[in-house]
Nucleic acid binder design. Structure first.
Length: 386
DNA sequence: AAAGCGTGGCT
DNA sequence: TAGCCAAGCTT
């Protein structure tokens, strides 16, 4: 069965995608599969119903570049704390950041907050029902606008995320590499419409990509689209999508200063409102650079009425890998006396408030390395009794 | 328009 | 294990 089936001859003279050339893959088969195998998710409406726009939007923002498993507990905490978009809009940004801490890509949390306020101010607290108006909101790009429009309002659009890219590039054996192939893939996806139940088509594509058409070892025997799939016919579905190579970042180093007051409070400050970890809380650190010299670290320590020799270097380093560079931090610890005053731009965070503060995970690693008790950013839901 | 932007899970 | 990779957006 491993006939090296040639793909349909490519015509160099016509670089055009082939939208409706072949009979469109049977959306009916996809929906039938979805009706039997759809995942049950906290933000998902029961069969036959539309998703609640607020829940759909919140989940879509959280799910950007983030796994379902990681999102679920955050989603439950957010909806408990902010049952409606008006509640979220009325909250302080810092309260939102504290709840988001640990989930990553913190610009999402800032935009989430701004978006909630925009929905209240521009739309009276009701999410707009069309892609264009959604697209104009903070943090909502092409994908999310289409996803909310389709899932919450049954708009006849097909959101293209990583799952859909994988499904469509395999279905059509798209030879071109991403991201250059994005326009072609979007056109192929758009050609699925018009079809019944656009919201379910969108969710079905994502479920298919997440559970059957997986990056490695796709379960083609279980796939409702095995028949029309060009990549499966070729015998190498796992080689799609093709991807352009990405370059890796260079290692940066720095030092972090953990000052612990006699009552257990820790010295902290807020990062600038935008950029890396924007708006999140951190302990004082040096700049992070490729040529950082550990020997000079103490020169950057906050004074607090202490001398350089009061800072003790904790053996070892804290390592953390961001999307675009790896980071290595040495940690220095000092004990500050009871009345010690926070330097300008810094503040003390009481021992009991550390777990709930807006410390990103890299800072939690630093605190833990320094011997400060700090829970995970996202405490897993309590273990079930029994 | 290419680069910046987190984190955890999986193989 | 050490890469990949996950329901992308912004500038």
């Amino acid at each position: 069965m491993t006939v090296a089936a040639p793909t349909p001859a490519r015509k160099p003279s016509r670089p055009e995608p082939q939208p409706a050339a072949a009979a469109p893959p049977a959306v009916g088969a996809l929906l039938a599969w979805y009706d039997r195998h759809r995942r049950v998710l906290p933000w998902r409406a029961p069969p036959g119903a539309r998703g609640d726009p607020y829940a759909v939007w919140l989940s879509e923002i959280m799910l950007q570049q983030t796994t379902v498993k990681a999102v679920v507990p955050y989603f439950l905490r957010f909806t408990a704390a902010f049952p409606t978009v008006r509640d979220l809009a009325a909250a302080d940004l810092d309260a939102v950041l504290r709840l988001w801490a640990g989930l990553g890509y913190y610009a999402r949390a800032r935009n989430l907050h701004a978006c909630a306020r925009a929905v209240v101010e521009r739309h009276g607290g009701v999410f707009p029902d069309n892609e264009a108006a959604l697209r104009a909101l903070p943090g909502i790009g092409d994908y999310t606008a289409k996803a909310v429009a389709a899932i919450a309002f049954d708009a006849p659009v097909v959101p293209v995320d990583g799952n859909v890219e994988r499904v469509m590039t395999r279905l059509h054996a798209v030879a071109e590499a991403l991201p250059a192939a994005k326009p072609r893939v979007k056109a192929l996806a758009a050609a699925l419409m018009p079809a019944p139940r656009p919201g379910d088509v969108a969710q079905a594509l994502m479920d298919l990509g997440a559970t059957i058409c997986t990056p490695k070892a796709p379960a083609c025997v279980l796939c409702p689209w095995a028949e029309p799939c060009a990549a499966r016919r070729r015998g190498d579905p796992e080689t799609f999508p093709r991807k352009a190579p990405k370059r890796e970042g260079t290692l940066r180093r720095g030092a972090a200063f953990v000052a612990v007051r006699a009552d257990g409070a820790v010295l902290a400050r807020s990062r600038p409102p935008s950029g890396l970890l924007g708006g999140m809380t951190e302990v004082p650190t040096t700049d992070w650079s490729a040529d950082f010299q550990t020997r000079t670290a103490r020169d950057h320590a906050p004074m607090l009425g202490l001398g350089p020799s009061d800072w003790r270097r904790v053996p070892g380093v804290v390592t953390h890998v961001f999307t675009h560079f790896p980071l290595e931090l040495v940690v220095l610890v000092a004990r500050a006396p009871h009345g010690a005053e926070a330097p300008a731009g810094c503040r003390w965070i009481a021992a009991g408030d550390i777990a709930g503060a807006a410390f990103p995970n890299v800072m939690r690693k630093v605190l833990a390395h320094a011997g400060v008790a700090v829970g995970p950013a996202a405490p897993p839901s309590r273990p079930r009794r029994g």
